[in-house]
């Protein structure tokens, strides 16, 4: 940030910065090209190593693409659901952390710290092993497949991280805003809903997207608890082929899918951060 320190009192209300993103776009192209160039020789090497009479690496990857894709869709679905649940519950938890009632504040702080500092995999294991595989409500049996339990398991750390994002954003709004709202005669609820939160939204968006990208890349963790997602199906495909030479290309192929999904999110986050950038 080379901008001189700004004397302006409401940094959030700065006009939108002109798109300085051309350089960033070049960066996008460059990274994508490097990725393509790096994977090409690996694939070619694989082709050369494939024994005569065996299907080529590319043909084999293509053959397994539908199965892997079906697993990948489940990864994305898990990430979207976990994010939705985590965001809704995290928003409430974040608001509770700035409550005026000390027990609410303390309790929500404790829950947030607990889930934020617990390893994701351990939370997943808890959810998978402790939740029943079906729930009986009266005479209705609701099945709980492993992937739904995995969604809950991933939503918990997401909730805690979103809560911190919300709390941080609220506390980053200058106290003048609170004072001004009070002077206008707004209640605390009105101040929060009409003055503070609308200003928070822009600030929360980039870190929130960051949490989402991290969550998406964490979804292969659920393969360990037996959910048939992309990682698990790739492993099963490798076992079915029993060809050690496929090991590297196949995992690389899967990696590229995750990269292509997460990279644009990371770039967009960066762009939004710049756009909503607050002068130091």
């Amino acid at each position: 940030m080379s901008r001189p320190p700004s004397p302006r009192p409401f940094p959030v209300l700065l006009p939108v910065r002109p798109p300085a993103a051309i350089a960033a776009r070049w960066g996008d192209c460059r990274t994508a090209t490097i990725l393509a160039l790096a994977s090409a020789p690996l694939l070619l090497m694989g082709e050369a190593l494939a024994a005569p009479g065996e299907a080529g690496i590319v043909a084999t990857l293509w053959k397994w693409t539908p199965v892997m894709a079906s697993g990948f869709v489940l990864n994305l679905w898990i990430s979207v659901l976990a994010m939705a649940i985590g965001t809704a519950s995290g928003a409430v938890l974040g608001l509770m952390q700035v409550s005026l009632l000390a027990p609410v504040r303390g309790g929500s702080w404790l829950v947030t710290q607990f889930f934020r500092n617990a390893p994701w995999l351990v939370l997943l294991f808890y959810c998978i092993l402790l939740m029943p595989f079906e729930i009986r409500l009266g005479g209705v049996v609701i099945p709980l497949p492993a992937w739904i339990k995995a969604v809950v398991g991933l939503a918990l750390p997401v909730m805690a991280n979103v809560a911190e994002v919300v709390r941080g954003a609220i506390q980053s709004i200058p106290t003048g805003q609170w004072d001004g709202a009070k002077a206008l005669g707004l209640t605390r609820l009105q101040t929060m809903g009409l003055v503070i939160l609308p200003q928070c939204l822009k600030r929360m968006l980039p870190p929130w997207m960051n949490v989402y990208a991290i969550l998406t890349m964490a979804t292969p963790l659920v393969s360990i608890v037996g959910v048939q997602e992309a990682m698990n199906l790739t492993r099963a495909a490798l076992n079915a082929e029993s060809r050690p030479d496929l090991l590297i290309p196949m995992y690389l192929y899967l990696l590229v899918w995750f990269f292509l999904y997460c990279f644009p999110i990371a770039r967009a986050t960066l762009w939004l951060e710049r756009r909503y950038g607050v002068a130091g």
């Binding site: 397994w64 199965v67 495909a237 076992n239 079915a240």
Partner: peptide, 14 residues
């Protein structure tokens, strides 16, 4: 099993 050829393994059709 889905990873133990030839007892139980995955087919490209899924």
């Amino acid at each position: 099993k889905n990873d133990y050829k030839p007892w139980g393994f995955l087919d490209p059709s899924g």
